[in-house]
C-alpha cells in the first residue's frame, strides 16, 4: 500500500473536472515533481491532495499509516502575509496546533518547533517579524511550520518562484536533505532544475498525462514538450526585458 494512490482520479470544482484520468502513486520516501502548463490542473490537484476540496471522480486513497491531514503544506506566499504582524516563532508554532487537542501550546510542541527552526538555521530569527524577512527566510519559516505539522509528507507549491538563484539553490539543498531523512516530497513546479532532484514525475496535461520515474520521464515526449515550453518562456522573458 502506498502513501497516496490516485486511480482514474478527476479533480475540479463544483463537480466540473479540471483534470481527469490521473493515475499516480506516492510511496514513502519518494520525491515527486508535479509539472504541467498553467491551467492544466496542478493547483487543483494539489488542493485535492490537501483535502481542501473533494475529488470529483475516480479514487484517491491515502494509506500506509498516513492520515489525510498529515501532509505538510508549503504554500505560495499570499499578499495578506506580506504585512502580517507575526514573529517567526508565532508562525512556526502555529503548525503544531493539531498535534495537541489542548488550547495552549505544550512544552513538547515548543521544543519540537525549536528543533525545526534550528535545523533550518533560522532559530536566531525567532523573535524577528515575519514581514521584515527576505523571501528565502520567509519561506524557511513556512517550511518550519509545515514540518512542525508533520514529518511524513511535505507538499511544496511552486517553492522557487520569486526566489533569487542563491535562495533557490538553498531550497533544493534543504528539500534533498529532508528527503534523505525519509520525508516524502511532493513539489508542484515550473522549474526544470527541480526534476534533477526528483525520483518520480507527474506531468499533468489536458489530453494525456505522464507518470513515471525520472529516467522514464527524461526519455518521454512529455519532457521534450516541457523543454520547448521552458525555452519559449525564456525567449518571451528576454523580449520583455
Amino acid at each position: 500500500m502506498a502513501y497516496i494512490l490516485g486511480r482514474e482520479l478527476a479533480v475540479g470544482y463544483n463537480g466540473k473536472p479540471v483534470a481527469e484520468n490521473l493515475n499516480f502513486k506516492v510511496n514513502r520516501g519518494d520525491y515527486l515533481c508535479i509539472v504541467g502548463m498553467n491551467g492544466a490542473g496542478k493547483s487543483t490537484l494539489m488542493k485535492t491532495l490537501l483535502s481542501l476540496i473533494n475529488p470529483v471522480g475516480g479514487e484517491l486513497k491515502i494509506g500506509d499509516g498516513l492520515e489525510p491531514h498529515e501532509i505538510g503544506y508549503l504554500p505560495q506566499q499570499s499578499d495578506t502575509q506580506r504585512d502580517f504582524p507575526a514573529t517567526v516563532w508565532e508562525v512556526a508554532l502555529s503548525g503544531t496546533i493539531t498535534r495537541n487537542r489542548r488550547l495552549m501550546y505544550s512544552k513538547a510542541q515548543k521544543a519540537y518547533v525549536e528543533r525545526r527552526l534550528k535545523e533550518l538555521n533560522i532559530y536566531n530569527l525567532k523573535n524577528e517579524s515575519y514581514r521584515s524577512l527576505s523571501g528565502g527566510q520567509q519561506q524557511r519559516t513556512l517550511l518550519a511550520r509545515a514540518l512542525s505539522a508533520t514529518s511524513k509528507v511535505l507538499l511544496l507549491d511552486e517553492p522557487v518562484s520569486g526566489l533569487d538563484p542563491n535562495a533557490m539553490q538553498q531550497l533544493y539543498t534543504i528539500t534533498d536533505e529532508l528527503n534523505q531523512k525519509g520525508i516524502t516530497i511532493i513539489m508542484v513546479t515550473h522549474d526544470m532544475a527541480a526534476i534533477e532532484h526528483a525520483t518520480h514525475v507527474l506531468h499533468v496535461n489536458k489530453n494525456k498525462h505522464f507518470f513515471g520515474t525520472k529516467d522514464e520521464y527524461l526519455k518521454s515526449s512529455h519532457y521534450k514538450m516541457f523543454c520547448e515550453l521552458e525555452a519559449d518562456d525564456n525567449r518571451s522573458g528576454k523580449e520583455i526585458a
Binding site: F84, A86, A146
Partner: peptide, 14 residues
C-alpha cells in the same frame, strides 16, 4: 491566529 495567518494551511492541517 492560525486561521487569520493562513486559512488554507489551517484547513490542510485539519
Amino acid at each position: 491566529f492560525a486561521i487569520t495567518f493562513d486559512e488554507d494551511f489551517a484547513k490542510a492541517t485539519g
